[in-house]
């Protein structure tokens, strides 16, 4: 049985993006989600026209997945990669839009297809050819222990070798994404960690961040930033 580690982590909120503890992007112009996410899409040089057709929850998840996968190894088979997401508002934002469309006349098929939160998992999976386990949980707050115990056993049972875990919340313009990846052999390596001031209390082994509920909580509650 080998240990599991957090191989990268990302936090997006209030027009700021932190990747592995450091600022990755900050939008000084746009204060709304639509403007911010479009700017971030351009910033990372993404070319994926389907992005514009997605609902906001999927856009947030997709962009997060894009940033994180560019910064982690991708030597795994599609069925060795998993996605576990959670949020508070499910797909309620799109549900409302769908209901409004019904009330005013004709419903839009393109809106209707996003009236399930796990569609966001599908979008990330399609983009990155992920065909392993996937789950989406809805809870009032980010249930870190649930996320941990839904992920770690998959690795320890060799059901997966790479997991993308996220709290991906969107409702009426308010958004937050905390996303991290779990691996047995992370490439978030010694040198990069040594350069970063490690937040007090983070459980580290061989200069790697151990996949543990307390570490997930520390990274999440500090908005993905590492500081003294």
């Amino acid at each position: 049985m080998s240990a599991t580690y957090i191989s990268s982590f990302l936090h997006i909120k209030n027009q700021e993006v932190y990747l592995n503890g450091s600022i990755f992007f900050k939008d000084e112009v746009n204060t709304d989600f639509a403007g911010f996410i479009r700017e971030l899409y351009r910033h990372i040089g993404m070319s994926y026209p389907k992005f514009y057709k997605m609902d906001d929850l999927s856009k947030l998840a997709l962009i997060g997945g894009e940033i994180i996968t560019k910064n982690t190894s991708d030597s795994f088979l599609p069925e060795e990669k998993s996605i576990i997401f959670a949020n508070k508002s499910s797909s309620l934002d799109t549900d409302y839009k769908h209901q409004e469309a019904i009330d005013t006349g004709l419903a839009s098929p393109a809106v209707f297809v996003y009236t399930l939160p796990n569609i966001s998992i599908g979008e990330v999976a399609i983009r990155h050819k992920i065909m392993g386990e996937n789950s989406f949980f809805v809870s009032e707050e980010f249930d870190i222990k649930n996320m941990f115990y839904r992920t770690d056993p998959l690795h320890l049972a060799n059901k997966t070798k790479y997991s993308i875990c996220a709290w991906v919340e969107y409702f009426q313009g308010n958004y937050e994404l905390f996303l991290y990846t779990v691996e047995q052999n992370p490439i978030l390596d010694v040198s990069s960690i040594e350069k970063m001031p490690i937040f007090a209390g983070l459980l580290i082994k061989d200069n790697k961040i151990i996949h543990h509920p307390s570490n997930i909580e520390i990274l999440y509650t500090n908005n993905g930033r590492l500081k003294n």
């Binding site: 004709l106 839009s108 393109a110």
Partner: peptide
């Protein structure tokens, strides 16, 4: 334009609307 099956449904709605 590389449209997909969902786009086809949107086109049907577009004509009706």
């Amino acid at each position: 334009l590389g449209l997909d099956s969902i786009d086809a449904l949107e086109l049907i709605v577009l004509l009706e609307k």
